[in-house]
Amino acid sequence: MSIQHFRVALIPFFAAFCLPVFAHPETLVKVKDAEDQLGARVGYIELDLNSGKILESFRPEERFPMMSTFKVLLCGAVLSRVDAGQEQLGRRIHYSQNDLVEYSPVTEKHLTDGMTVRELCSAAITMSDNTAANLLLTTIGGPKELTAFLHNMGDHVTRLDRWEPELNEAIPNDERDTTMPAAMATTLRKLLTGELLTLASRQQLIDWMEADKVAGPLLRSALPAGWFIADKSGAGERGSRGIIAALGPDGKPSRIVVIYTTGSQATMDERNRQIAEIGASLIKHW
């Protein structure tokens, strides 16, 4: 067993022997301040990774656009098919120029040779490549099948209805392509620590998230040296922004954090800054 596999296998073990965790309302004060600064709703939840206990939450059962955070769930569904012998990570998928959609920095470079399922998941999570996500959605049967996968996990809230990039439209009061912070946090925890996926697939999923290259201005910008984070960000229309993450000190994750916002007129930089400040408060009061 590799060191990384050992780390993920012992996530519940280490967490069980940690000192009790206590909620700190100071972080919620910052979440509410972010709402004021952005002029928009902000949803927040913080779960203990081992027990699933909610440590703090704000608007945990209000719907927010998922945006690209759905790509972690998508690759979880792909990995479940791999575990069941219905898919192979090494299978190569070929596609054409007509398949390319807006923001496809990886797939646009491989029109000639195609990409493997493993490479597509890596591109979808680490670079948020939209064509990679659409190609992977095709392998599982489309958005409705991802929703069905989530329902089978016990998540009857999260739903995907459309493809990239239309799913980022974020129309107010439109339930399409949305989740709730509580539902997303619980589902992410199941994917990373539950028995739904094999140990190898859980490790692969967290490795992809740990290698995320496009979430630097968010929670990662607030992390002290030595902290662990595996995350996936999302951005959408109407001032929408979000991030889902597993993080913790001492090089291992111990909490799940989900943050979503929508309806702001603020710039992307300002949305990023507010999420980073929430992260800084979380870490300060850990």
Rank of each mutant, 00 (worst) to 15 (best):
M1F: 02
S2L: 14
I3M: 08
L10W: 07
I11W: 12
P12V: 12
F13P: 07
A15I: 14
V21D: 05
K30L: 12
K30Y: 05
V31E: 01
D36C: 14
Q37N: 15
Q37V: 15
A40S: 10
R41Q: 10
V42M: 10
N50V: 11
K53W: 10
E56H: 08
S57W: 11
S57R: 12
E62V: 08
P65R: 02
L73C: 08
V78C: 05
S80D: 10
V82Q: 06
D83K: 04
G85H: 12
E87W: 05
Q88M: 11
G90S: 13
R91T: 08
R92K: 12
H94V: 14
Q97H: 14
Q97R: 15
L100S: 04
Y103F: 09
Y103R: 04
S104Y: 03
T107Y: 01
E108G: 12
K109T: 13
H110C: 08
D113M: 10
D113Y: 11
G114D: 04
M115A: 06
M115R: 05
M115E: 03
M115Y: 03
T116S: 10
T116R: 06
R118K: 11
L120K: 00
A123T: 05
I125G: 01
N130C: 05
L135G: 02
L135S: 04
I140K: 03
L146W: 05
T147E: 09
A148Y: 13
H151L: 13
H156R: 13
V157I: 12
T158I: 02
L160A: 11
R162V: 02
W163Q: 09
W163R: 11
P165N: 08
N168W: 03
E169Y: 11
E169V: 11
E169F: 12
N173K: 13
A183T: 12
T187M: 08
L188S: 06
L188Q: 03
E195N: 15
L197W: 03
R202P: 01
Q203P: 02
Q203H: 14
D207W: 12
D207E: 14
E210A: 10
D212F: 02
L219C: 04
A225E: 14
A230F: 02
A230T: 02
G234C: 06
A235H: 02
A235Y: 02
G236H: 02
E237M: 15
S240T: 07
R241N: 04
G242S: 07
A245Y: 01
A245Q: 01
A246L: 14
P249A: 08
D250P: 09
K252L: 10
P253Q: 08
S254H: 14
V257C: 07
V258S: 04
T267R: 11
T267Y: 08
N272I: 03
Q274G: 09
A276V: 10
A280L: 11
I283Y: 15
H285M: 09
